[in-house]
Simulated assay, not measured.
Amino acid sequence: MLAKQAGVRRVVLTSSISAITPSPRWPSDKIKGEDCWTDIDYCKQKGLWYPLSKTLAEKAAWEFAKEKGLDVVVVNPGTVMGDIISPRLNASMVMLLRLLEGCTETYENFFMGSVHFKDVALAHILVYENKSATGRHLCVEAISHYGDFVAKVAELYPEYKVLSLPKDTQPELLREKNAAKKLMNLGLEFIPMDQIIKDAVESLKSKGFIS
């Protein structure tokens, strides 16, 4: 309420695709998007506390906004990678680092697509400045499987001998190239997966996380 009293016009909340998936009850023939929510009961049953926390936090924000009459818009980023700014790696960059080191985890419940740090930052600016922006905004360069991402890393960096994984690592997830249409309609041109990986790996090299 202090923000509203201070005259703040709009609040932009950073949520996550973890508030969209896992959602096993979602129709298998329907692409997941802003209208899809992570299944809270499923997360509790499986002990998936991170997506549970992200989902409950976003739902609480929407309830608070409705109760207090706040203008809130949400950005739901996917796996965020690219040039490293902070001294510590975020979870997404750790995932990439582990992959380069030989990890075979498929992240079945935690992957929906990659996105560059720069595009996540730009998405926040766009939804703040555009009055037409409302609701949630999926923020990924494409909806893809982790297996797609792994195959691309292996193609671009064969010297790391990335272990082969099944291509369909997210069995409940339909691929979609232009998934983030709401942000694209606001003018965001997403950096493609190839460049996301190159920027991320080269940054890991320059910062000494990998040789």
Rank of each mutant, 00 (worst) to 15 (best):
C43N: 12
L48M: 09
I40N: 06
Q45G: 08
W49P: 01
F110T: 04
V11Y: 06
K205R: 14
L188D: 03
I17A: 02
T104S: 09
D83H: 15
H145F: 06
C139M: 08
G147H: 10
A200R: 03
D41A: 11
D168Y: 12
V72A: 05
L163W: 03
E159S: 00
K207T: 05
P158D: 05
E58D: 10
R25D: 13
A179E: 00
H145A: 13
V74T: 12
Q45D: 13
K32P: 05
L56E: 12
N185Y: 04
P77C: 04
P77R: 08
K161W: 02
M112D: 04
K68W: 07
M95G: 12
V75Q: 07
E129A: 14
K167A: 14
L100K: 07
Y128P: 02
F149R: 12
K46Q: 15
Y160N: 05
P158V: 10
E101C: 08
P171E: 07
Q5I: 05
T106P: 09
L174F: 04
S15R: 11
K32N: 09
A180G: 06
E63M: 09
A57R: 08
L70K: 09
L204N: 03
K198Y: 07
A142N: 13
L122C: 13
D194R: 10
S92Q: 07
C36H: 02
R136G: 01
F110W: 14
W49V: 11
K59L: 15
L13S: 14
P192I: 06
S28R: 15
I191S: 03
E105P: 06
S206F: 03
D199H: 02
E101F: 07
D119M: 01
K207Y: 03
L163A: 14
E58Q: 13
Y146W: 11
D35V: 12
T14W: 04
L174S: 03
S16K: 05
I85Q: 12
L56H: 02
C103H: 05
R175V: 13
G7I: 00
Y157N: 08
K131H: 11
D148A: 10
Q195Y: 06
K205Y: 01
G82W: 01
I191D: 08
